[in-house]
Amino acid sequence: MTPPDSAPKYTWRHRHLLGLEELSADDLRFLFRTARGFEEVSTRSVKKVPALRGKVVVNLFFEDSTRTRSSFHLAASRLSADVLELAGKGSSMSKGETLTDTARNIEAMGVDIIVCRHNQSGAARHLAQAVNCNVVNAGDGQHEHPTQGLLDIFTLCKRWGLDDTFDLTGKTVAIVGDIAHSRVARSNIYGLRTLGAKIILVGPPTLLPQSFKDLGCEISHDLDQVLGRVDAVNMLRIQFERMTSQFFPSVREYATMFGLTAKRIKLAKPDLLVMHPGPINRGMELDAAVADGPNSAILEQVTNGLAIRMAALFLVINAKP
C-alpha cells in the first residue's frame, strides 16, 4: 500500500462509511491510494490478502442488488474475511422487527462490519448509532451510496491520469437523469466537489429540484448545450421503483430529450467519458452503441468497485477515531 505522501501525519478516523458528505479531500485521497494498493491483489494467481483474516463481514441487504452485493462479497473475500449474506425485505415496519433490533441481533453473532443496503434514507446512520461494529453504507434510500460515488470518481481519475494527485480542479462532470431520487448523484456531488470538480446536473425539472443549486451545482435542462462543456457524463438510471407519481410524460419523450444517443454524443468532446452506475435501461438513458462504445467506462467502474470496497472495509475496521 502506498502511504499518502502529501499528508504524512494523516490518520483515517471514520469507523463507519456512511456518506461522502463527511469525507475531506485528504480522506478521499487516502482511500483512493489504499484502493490503488489493493488493485494489485486482483492480478495475483491467488487473489487474497490476509488483511481481514478472522473478521466477519455481513452483507445486510434490504433491497435487491446484484453488483453492489457481489462486489462487497468479493472484496471481503479477497481480504480473507468471512462473509455472511443476509437479505431483508422492505422497511422494518413490514417485517415486524425494527432495524435496530435486526442489527443488534446480527452483531450479537460476533460480526465486525455490517454492509447495509436499505430503501430508507438515513438507515445506515440509524444502524451506526445502534451497534458497536463498523458500518458501511451500501446505499440508503435516496440519501447516499458512498462506494458508488468513490468508484465513479476513482474511475475518472484513473482514466485522466490523475491517480497520483486525485485533484479534479479544472474538470467538469455532468450527472444526467433522475437526480431527485438518486443516492448515486448525491454521493458523486459531494465527492467531486470536495476534489475540485465542477458539476452540472441535467434532467427535467420534475427530477431535478432547484435546491440542488444549494449543493454547489449548476442546473440545466438541456443536455445538448451541456455536452460540449463537460469532460465526463454520468448517466443515471431512471428509478421507476422510487417514483410514486408521474415525473415525465413518456419514456419516448425522456429518451429523446435526455438519452445519450450515438448521434448526440457527437456534440461532446471526443474523449468524453461515459459512466453509468447500472443496471442500464438500454435505449432509454443510454444507447447500446454508446454504452458499449469507446467513450464508455462502464465496465471499468465495475472493476474499480472491487478495489474501492476492499479499501473501504479495510479502512473502517482500522480507523483510529
Partner: peptide, 11 residues
C-alpha cells in the same frame, strides 16, 4: 420541510 436539507438527506 421541503428544501436544501431534505434534498441533502434524501427525504
Amino acid at each position: 420541510n421541503a428544501g436544501t436539507l431534505s434534498t441533502k438527506l434524501g427525504l
